[in-house]
Design a protein around this nucleic acid. Sequence first.
DNA 1: CGCCTAGATAAGCGATCGGTTATCGGATAG
DNA 2: CTATCCGATAACCGATCGCTTATCTAGGCG
Lengths: 321, 321
Amino acid sequence: MTLTQLEAFVLVARLGSVKAAARSLGVSEPAVSSALASLRQQLGDSLVQRTSSGMELTPGGRRLVPIASQMVGLAVEAEAAIRQAQGAPDNLRVVATSDVAESVAPALVAAFNAKSKAVEVSLGVCSTEDMAAILQERLADVGIGPSLSSDGFPRLECSPLFRYRLIFVASPDHHLSGAAAIEPRALAHETWLVGPDAGDERSPVRSLLDRLHVPEARISVFPSHAAALTAAEQRQGIAPAVAHVVLDDPEPRGVVPLAVRGTPVELLWHVTMLAADRRSLASAAFHRFVGTPAATHAMHAPLRGVRPSQFRPPVYVTIWN
Amino acid sequence: MTLTQLEAFVLVARLGSVKAAARSLGVSEPAVSSALASLRQQLGDSLVQRTSSGMELTPGGRRLVPIASQMVGLAVEAEAAIRQAQGAPDNLRVVATSDVAESVAPALVAAFNAKSKAVEVSLGVCSTEDMAAILQERLADVGIGPSLSSDGFPRLECSPLFRYRLIFVASPDHHLSGAAAIEPRALAHETWLVGPDAGDERSPVRSLLDRLHVPEARISVFPSHAAALTAAEQRQGIAPAVAHVVLDDPEPRGVVPLAVRGTPVELLWHVTMLAADRRSLASAAFHRFVGTPAATHAMHAPLRGVRPSQFRPPVYVTIWN
DNA sequence: CGCCTAGATAAGCGATCGGTTATCGGATAG
DNA sequence: CTATCCGATAACCGATCGCTTATCTAGGCG
């Protein structure tokens, strides 16, 4: 029974699939499967069994989850405690959905870092779907993205962070540029140039594309939002974008907003972390920070110096440990 | 950071020496030392440092102890939880000092076993000194021996179990047999035939020998009390013994009690286990059991069928896991 | 019916673990 | 000063871990 095995098991139990757990851990599927096999053999219980709809816990597995989860949590706590005892900088791992990670997160993280020098902040990317489990399993300390409040993760606390506007942009040459009061359903057969969050089942962009019934063939997914925007400048296509990031850019992009009815879409990003009694000192400091005007200001500031290379290449994987 | 390493560290911290930890775990000294080295390297903290008087914790080490302790505790809890979920018999590991293990413990354990068929009980031996740490680290569930109440192990609960009389016996041929009102200090230069607990710093027999200033050369330590008694039948020497065990034996030993002033010595054995809120179901059942008349009766019953071979050969080591 | 998805299994590989015996080093006591 | 105790280290070894790629297999679905 190793901590690695326990962590794999907990993630399988929490996420309901070996595949998702493997993705969250950034390893291959058999790695997780065999970790599970070792546990099963050693404990003499199958722990989880596949059913038609995901993986179901056995009675033994159900008991193991909270214990194993706590053990893994204690392991990271141990490391943090010792680092702190030595006066070493505390560590804060922020995960965000890809849209956040490419818009407001860098500035927010930088501002926080400037203020609390004793904390080392790192920024990662994950899908909305995995975020709750990642936070609960302490693979990360803070999550930024859509609201996670109704997820059945009672130990997580989710609060509104930032109100933003989703707009659609295109090159000035685009045939819809300049058109007035465009009907949304007219966009169903346009070419869409989107960032990685189009792969995230629960991202606003994804649900929008789903609602419009845009066929797969008309969607081009880019490894970053910046790349999607660049493509929109050059190719005929529509890109969703966060309003203030595109419009207030000091070096304006070669795209213009489209006058689509119902836009800009008002949306909210939330910040999620463990409940107050079990979060780390650094997490608590971050939580306090995001309530300050300095944080709001940083997020509203135009995006500066963000290059796609700043973001982890494997966008949908969060790797630490 | 593996559980094995954490356990080694905790035991070193608790027992104050690598040697004692190695003994408790039943492994060699370098095994513990290298486990410690791995932890030190990985966490970047020396954790414990040797001083003139034992090992001293660093600030980081001090923080790690409770966390690591909890982790290993959870590991054994996990196994127990799953075993129980499968309806498998619960497991109760009893440790006792060697005097108890050879006198009342077998009957007590057997009686408990007969009553709760769903619990598998095993009996081990350890020194008084190590008992508290062994219980706290869940290497065993129940400890029987001298009182441990003043040991600075706040999570342990210690209650009186059994009042017994310590007497001295010798062969009827012995020159002191039949003598009246023997002065204790007259025994200082006799030959003593004692069981393994003479090696236990805190056993009553040891402190008695210390008080009499019996020279090392006059003490013969046997691998079991039974062996010491047998030797007393055949050789010229005095053996300490638990009164009712020797006197009520259905097949009387060839020894007689000596009329030493101050004897019989009234002593108490205690039972120690984790505090009520963190003990296992089986431990709780055992705790209830020792308060019943059946338990008292079992302990008072003459020792039946006890052979030295029933006791672990390496007397001062407790091995499970 | 065959395809597809997702988990299990096989085979293999390097790193680490966990243990041993033997030796070294440093403080303490006599 | 030397003997001794105790922890650290060296050298070594087998088992396991943790991971990979490739293949197998059981259900669900068109």
